[in-house]
């Protein structure tokens, strides 16, 4: 199945562009921040002393720094997943796949596997970048705090399967992309903010906000706890994250399985 998806993707230019932009943007941003701090430190002894205390690019904090920063770039793999699904509908190649021997379940599973693959590649880049950054800051290798990668993996899964569901539900590339961007930037905040008037604290359980809460910025964590004392704990977040994954996959399959193609 993955071989067939690979045959479809290997000559698809947007795939390579997005797969390159994602790590390049992340590498670029983090190295820029890191180099800027180092440069300022070398120019000013006072800053140098302060920088010495900054541990963001050393183990174990580097895992949190990189995963949290990477969480701002989720939209790139999501765009790739949306295109991967919607292109099949728009060019009706998914029908041809079925005529040529796949069942609906096989086609759906192939897209789920691509989504999982993209998620794993994202995690790989983040792990590699954290290791490289720590190495450039003379931090001895350590796996302490590497559980952040697992939370990042979960966060990616929620975003990516949200995109997959949107692709299967909407089927139109431009429309689903617009919905994804509007929803992630403002619509979720507005909708769940409105719902919170009727259902207390429901805003904490909005899917993308919930995913973001899996990786809070550590410097901000204590402040956030004071501002939002009712925010759900990690176990609750995990349970809801799993629920959302099941919901997104279930909705996508239901729509694909129960409709004319």
């Amino acid at each position: 199945m993955l071989k067939i998806e690979w045959l479809k993707l290997k000559r698809y230019k947007p795939f390579w562009i997005l797969m390159t932009i994602y790590p390049a943007s992340l590498f670029g941003l983090l190295f820029l921040i890191s180099r800027t701090i180092d440069r300022q430190a070398s120019l000013n002894p006072a800053i140098h002393n302060a920088v010495d205390k900054i541990t963001a690019f050393r183990y174990p904090e580097v895992w949190t720094t990189v995963t949290w920063t990477a969480s701002w770039f989720h939209f790139l793999p999501c765009v790739l997943i949306l295109l991967n699904v919607c292109n099949e509908f728009e060019s009706r190649t998914h029908r041809q796949n079925l005529l040529d021997g796949w069942s609906r379940a096989q086609f759906f599973l192939a897209k789920v596997m691509v989504t999982l693959g993209v998620t794993l590649v994202s995690v790989f880049w983040v792990a590699l970048l954290a290791t490289l950054l720590a190495a450039t800051h003379s931090s001895p290798p350590s796996l302490e705090g590497a559980d952040r990668l697992l939370y990042f993996f979960e966060q990616c899964l929620i975003y990516n399967f949200f995109a997959l569901a949107l692709g299967f539900l909407v089927r139109r590339g431009i429309v689903s992309l617009a919905i994804f961007l509007v929803y992630s930037v403002s619509l979720e905040f507005v909708v769940f903010g409105f719902l919170s008037f009727f259902l207390r604290h429901v805003e904490y359980y909005a899917p993308l906000r919930l995913a973001n809460q899996l990786l809070p910025l550590p410097l901000w964590k204590d402040v956030a706890k004071r501002i939002s004392p009712d925010a759900p704990g990690m176990e609750v977040l995990q349970a809801f994250a799993l629920g959302y994954l099941v919901l997104f996959i279930g909705l996508s399959w239901w729509r694909y399985h129960r409709s004319d193609l």
Partner: peptide, 20 residues
């Protein structure tokens, strides 16, 4: 219905894979 960015042969390769 074929993948527009692939060549005729590459499209048939996908068909052949789909048919095992």
């Amino acid at each position: 219905n074929f993948y527009s960015y692939l060549t005729g042969r590459e499209n048939l390769e996908i068909v052949a894979e789909l048919r095992g």
